[in-house]
Write a protein that binds this DNA or RNA. Structure first.
Length: 230
DNA sequence: AACTGATCATCT
DNA sequence: AGATGATCAGTT
């Protein structure tokens, strides 16, 4: 297996087969090898570069880079997610999905939600994430091209509806990360001083911490496990 | 081990 | 301010 040339931006994949082939070709390489081959300087750790691995893999796979509110592979409708895993392939972190809308939610439904859109088709790439492993030696795992099963989608929908109901009812500040079986709502902000508009208990406008939807490890764990078992 | 709030970089 | 890419680190 040989690494693709990445010194020049590589074109988006034409279809899922091509995308999966590119991702599969990266499996087994470590971050030091991929960084060197791409001519990038690997950070000492991820403390100040939390999205570094995601950006690196975007580059190798031909994702439309940057911060556009679109899927990573818009043309083929696929989202890319790297997920840090332990030695047994279990997730080490929750997975950010998208920012939660805290205002203007009258009439929003699961069918039209950003969560459903983002998760409709995801290329999961596990990456060794144990902190004992130096960043340079952490290896890329086998990719998984995934869509939620009917059961998984129902779990997601139920949680999304529960959380959105609370938001609409002005109870966003009462929501904890325990609400939801598989989806949780937590801060997603530059820092604790960042505020956004929301609706309060009495329907009044309030300023609160921006929130995001995250997939719990109890969701992504079994999802990955099933894949690597089969 | 899960939860929880906080945080970092970059771009539009 | 809010989107992209997420992980850190203390507490329970």
């Amino acid at each position: 297996m040989t690494l693709p040339i990445v010194s020049t931006p590589i074109p988006p994949p034409g279809d899922e087969i091509e995308l999966l082939a590119r991702a599969s070709a990266l499996a087994g390489y470590n971050l030091g090898e991929l960084a060197a081959h791409a001519g990038l300087v690997l950070p000492a750790d991820l403390k100040r570069d939390k999205g570094w691995i995601g950006v690196l893999l975007e580059r190798y796979l031909g994702a439309s880079a940057g911060s556009k509110p679109e899927q990573d592979f818009a043309a083929i409708g696929v989202e890319l997610k790297t997920i840090p895993v332990d030695s047994r392939g279990r997730p080490l972190e929750t997975t950010f999905v998208c920012v939660a809308p805290l205002t203007g939610n009258s009439g929003v439904t699961w069918e039209t939600s950003h969560v459903r859109y983002k998760l409709a088709r995801v290329l999961w790439i596990p990456v060794e994430g144990a902190r004992e492993i130096p960043l340079t030696r952490r290896r890329i795992g086998t990719p998984l091209l995934w869509s939620p099963s009917p059961e998984e989608e129902l779990l997601l929908q139920n949680d999304w509806e529960e959380l959105m109901d609370l938001i609409v009812l002005g109870r966003v500040e009462h929501i904890t990360a325990r609400h939801g079986e598989v989806l949780q709502l937590r801060p997603k902000a530059a820092n604790s001083r960042a505020l956004t508009k929301a609706t309060g208990e009495f329907g009044q406008p309030i300023m609160t911490l921006p929130r995001g939807f995250y997939l719990k490890k109890t969701f992504t764990g079994p999802m990955l496990a099933r894949h690597f078992l089969v």
